[in-house]
Simulated scan of single mutants.
Amino acid sequence: MVLVGQVGPVPELNTAPLVRGNRRIAGSLIGGIAETQEMLAFCASKDVLPEVEMIRMDEINEAYDRMERSDVHYRFFIDMASLGTSVAG
């Protein structure tokens, strides 16, 4: 298991399953480019998609308030079409 980012305090850890199963835990504050690409390739091959909540640009203040109240279940994704202008690619 690789933990990417801080997960907060962890309750007491029983290491017996780790030792007996020849498993390990590693951690990084950020994943490197190679690890990120590997994870994206794995997700694409397994059709694993992120769970997001799409919001319009005019809902951004409400989204921020919800974040402050810890009322967010998924990552917010801003629908750029709601800006009313086309984005050149």
Score class of each variant (00 low, 15 high):
M1Q: 09
V2Y: 03
V2D: 11
V4I: 11
V4Q: 02
G5N: 15
V7Q: 10
G8Y: 13
G8Q: 05
P9S: 05
P9E: 07
V10D: 02
P11F: 06
P11H: 10
E12D: 06
L13I: 15
P17M: 12
V19G: 05
R20N: 07
N22M: 10
R24N: 11
I25S: 00
S28G: 13
L29W: 11
L29N: 15
I30L: 14
G31A: 15
G32E: 15
I33S: 10
E35A: 12
E35N: 03
T36Y: 14
Q37N: 09
M39L: 06
L40C: 03
A41W: 00
A44V: 08
A44P: 06
A44Y: 08
A44N: 03
S45L: 09
S45W: 00
L49R: 15
P50W: 02
P50M: 03
M54C: 02
I55R: 12
R56F: 00
M57T: 03
D58G: 02
D58S: 06
E59C: 01
E59Y: 01
I60T: 09
N61P: 01
A63L: 07
A63K: 09
A63C: 01
A63T: 00
Y64E: 09
R66G: 05
R66Q: 14
R66E: 08
R66M: 13
R66N: 12
M67Y: 12
M67C: 11
M67T: 14
E68R: 04
S70R: 12
S70Q: 13
S70A: 06
S70L: 10
H73T: 00
H73Y: 04
R75M: 13
R75H: 05
F77M: 13
I78H: 01
I78E: 10
D79R: 14
M80R: 11
A81R: 13
A81H: 14
S82M: 02
L83R: 05
T85H: 12
T85N: 05
S86G: 15
S86F: 15
S86P: 01
S86D: 13
V87E: 03
V87Q: 03
A88D: 12
A88R: 10
